[in-house]
Design a protein around this nucleic acid. Structure first.
Length: 129
RNA sequence: UCAGUCGGCCGGACGGCCGCUCCGGCAAGUGCCGAAAGGCCGCCGGGGAGGAAAGUCCGGGCUCCCUUGACAUACGGUGCCGGAUAACGUCCGGCGGGGGCGACCCCAGGGAAAGUGCCACAGAGAACGAACCGCCCUGCUUCGCCUUCUGGCUUCGCAGGGUAAGGGUGAAAAGGUGCGGUAAGAGCGCACCGCGGAUCCGGCAACGGAGCCGGCAUGGUAAACCCCACCGGGAGCAAAACCGAAUAGGGACGGCGUAGCGGGCUGUUCGCGCAAGCGAUAACGCCGCGGGGCGAUGUCAGGCCCGCCGUCCGGGUAGGUUGCUCGAGGCCGUGUGCAAACACGGUCCCAGAGGAAUGGCCGUCACGUAUCAUUCGCGCAAGCGGGUGGUGCCCUACAGAACCCGGCUUACAGGCCGGCUGAUAUC
């Protein structure tokens, strides 16, 4: 799994499918080549000052690390857009949110319709595998 | 002990699991990604946010541009004196003014006799120095009284003059206080204070002190214009250097071909001319007796230009690499200096990311805080202070390096240390 670094890649993914969650928005886009899954992170300035933005990005990155790689579609690009709730939301709950978000845009990949499914509010803490 | 003041320091600790990034060493398929430049992959060891990394307000280094090297002008900045420094608007030590019992704190602190402007309201008057109420004198008139006198005292008013003591206005009223003086007054005279001048003494200087002289003349405002002195070329690491595609476009050479196809422009007639062209012309052809209609925003032939393939050259973009961390560097010691700081010696290498690493999730402890229980001391009591334990909260404030230094400013939970001052108590 690679990181997304070029600005052009971010712009391309931003036009793809979306899945919303209280702590983040997941954007995705299939690629033509057979490269690995790539993922990038975006936290805008309206989410807080620099230490808070750093913390949001680090928690999101840790979520992706903990997630089983199987749940992601092969040769797709993903972008996680952070929200302010990512600072305080329970980590195990966010992990469930992300797992659900990854299953969602697989059905609507081509239409680009924004699937909207908030994660379960009270999630039992699950073992992160 | 309490209150205060100044300065310095810290800004959670330990552990577990899983990671990120850089450096060094070893290993390394000629492996993977990419057209290339270039990048990625293993193991071991080590480093990895701050006192403000922030605001981007000053000063530098460095890079490029321009030449401006100097002077002048414009613009901007600085503004008591001396020192420190690469430099500064910073720092240190003094001076002057103001505040505080004091330690100590604050100061946009050059020039108002170069010039211009402004000084609201109130007030008579606010700057080529002012008489509103007063006070005083003289003349005239008038009321009353005393009287021997052409005299004296007194009341009202008018006119002329003197006056800055008193009242009133104001942020500020023309030196202040006292004594003398006077019709009443006034630096009119004198003493002290203030102000100004030159002299002398101390100090590198800002400035301070002394006696002498001057009778006071220059009100405030320069964070109003201005004057004086000093300083300043511009842009900034997204600077800049190197490598460098795809695609489009530029140039050179070669190949194929000089034919066909596609696109664009030209396209009438007559005369002269070999032609290039020049001149004339709506003037041509057909139908029609004619008016008129059609050919015609047309077409053929011909001419000119562009388009193919390959190699190379040069410029630019995406992208990549460098710049990128050894520095006016940190720590320790010695010396000089009141100090800021400087010199010498020793020692250490201490973040280098680039959609941006330095972390995520937990556990234990400490700290803080809220509440409950219990206990101790003081007290009649209400209550106050302290200890222990449980639980909850915050599980930490302000805040994230972005080329690098020196400063300034601003933000900051909580805590530690030291100097000094005042008050109280005790000896």
């Amino acid at each position: 799994m690679d990181r997304l670094r070029q600005r052009a890649d971010f712009l391309a993914v931003a036009n793809g499918a979306r899945a919303n969650s209280p702590a983040f928005v997941l954007q995705s886009r299939p690629r033509d080549d057979s490269g690995p899954v790539r993922i990038g992170f975006t936290v805008t300035k309206k989410n807080g000052n620099a230490p808070e933005r750093n913390r949001i990005r680090r928690r999101l990155r840790e979520l992706v690390k903990r997630l089983d790689p199987v749940s992601m579609q092969p040769h797709h690009d993903y972008v996680l857009v952070g929200r302010r709730d990512a600072l305080s939301r329970d980590f195990a709950t966010m992990l469930d949110d992300l797992r659900i978000a990854f299953t969602k845009p697989a059905r609507h990949t081509h239409k680009g319709s924004r699937g909207q499914r908030p994660g379960p509010a009270s999630a039992a803490s699950r073992k992160p595998d």
